[in-house]
Simulated scan of single mutants.
Amino acid sequence: MNIVLLGLPGAGKGTQAKIIVNHLSIPHISTGDLFRQAYQAKTELGLRAKEFMDKGELIPDEVTIGLAFSRIGEVDCARGFLLDGFPRNLNQARALRNYLDSGSKQIRHVVYVEVDENLLLERLTGRRVCVGCGTTFHLIYNPPANDNACDCCNGEIIQREDDREETVKERLKINKELTHKLVQFYGDEGILRKVDGAKGIDEVTKDVLGLF
């Protein structure tokens, strides 16, 4: 079964992705992992991707698409796969459709974990990290016993720059525009499945697994 997982930052995609792949016994393919693995293997596409990342620039579609297609073509994807972070835009979505069509395959489900932006903002800006051991906390969902110290090592608790409200709002804005277009695209294809990501993790999991 071939699946695409969509959702804005903070929607809980990572948590659900792990559950889905364990349930269906298919590989989890994320763009972050693809870039890291390709660079570590010193592949041509991996080295090209690293050049753009080092400059802080977006990786061109042709590089991302090439890496994704190479991974999808591996033996362990024969029974299916879950794509997380790819496709990121319409160009990539169309390329994926054409690639799978050429091999008489298709995406079976596109799961969109939908969460209100205000809740996403709360989830993302409430995150805190220990500078000592890296333990992650959340001011609402998993607060430290002491606001200023880590429960594990007593290290300082800080808010990372990319978790600050202004940064989070910009991330959500950019991702919302891209995701909205993908939601429309896959809606027109008739394979979009929406789940309410505002529910508890177990409830979301039940809804997601009920799709397959």
Rank of each mutant, 00 (worst) to 15 (best):
189 E>H: 12
90 L>F: 07
52 F>L: 03
143 P>G: 02
125 T>Y: 13
205 T>E: 14
188 D>E: 10
43 T>G: 03
144 P>K: 13
41 A>M: 11
147 D>H: 14
128 R>G: 13
40 Q>C: 02
132 G>A: 04
137 F>A: 06
209 L>A: 06
14 G>N: 09
2 N>I: 01
10 G>L: 07
8 L>I: 04
210 G>Y: 11
124 L>C: 10
112 Y>D: 12
146 N>D: 10
118 N>L: 13
150 C>L: 01
157 I>N: 05
169 K>Q: 10
57 E>D: 09
201 I>F: 03
2 N>D: 03
141 Y>R: 12
80 G>N: 05
99 Y>C: 01
93 A>G: 05
70 S>G: 03
96 L>D: 08
64 T>K: 00
73 G>V: 00
66 G>K: 10
120 L>A: 11
87 P>C: 02
15 T>K: 11
145 A>M: 05
27 P>I: 04
24 L>K: 12
23 H>Q: 08
203 E>H: 13
195 V>N: 13
130 C>P: 04
75 V>D: 12
188 D>L: 11
183 V>C: 08
125 T>F: 05
155 G>Q: 02
122 E>R: 15
127 R>Q: 12
198 A>C: 11
55 K>T: 01
108 R>C: 04
43 T>I: 04
181 K>F: 00
111 V>Q: 05
81 F>D: 08
23 H>N: 15
65 I>N: 04
142 N>H: 14
53 M>H: 00
103 G>P: 01
35 F>K: 01
7 G>K: 11
188 D>V: 05
162 D>P: 09
127 R>A: 09
92 Q>K: 10
99 Y>G: 00
88 R>W: 01
112 Y>G: 08
207 D>T: 12
83 L>F: 07
6 L>Q: 07
74 E>C: 09
32 G>Q: 05
200 G>P: 10
212 F>C: 06
49 A>E: 03
37 Q>K: 12
63 V>P: 02
187 G>M: 07
122 E>A: 14
21 V>L: 07
56 G>W: 02
109 H>T: 13
165 E>N: 00
212 F>N: 07
126 G>Q: 11
97 R>C: 09
165 E>K: 15
145 A>H: 06
200 G>H: 10
194 K>S: 07
120 L>H: 11
212 F>L: 04
67 L>H: 14
195 V>K: 14
4 V>I: 15
115 V>M: 14
113 V>I: 15
175 N>R: 05
107 I>Q: 03
143 P>W: 00
42 K>Y: 04
209 L>E: 06
92 Q>S: 06
120 L>I: 14
132 G>F: 04
168 V>D: 00
15 T>R: 10
178 L>E: 07
98 N>I: 06
205 T>H: 03
192 L>N: 14
90 L>C: 07
173 K>R: 12
51 E>Y: 03
65 I>T: 12
99 Y>Q: 13
66 G>F: 08
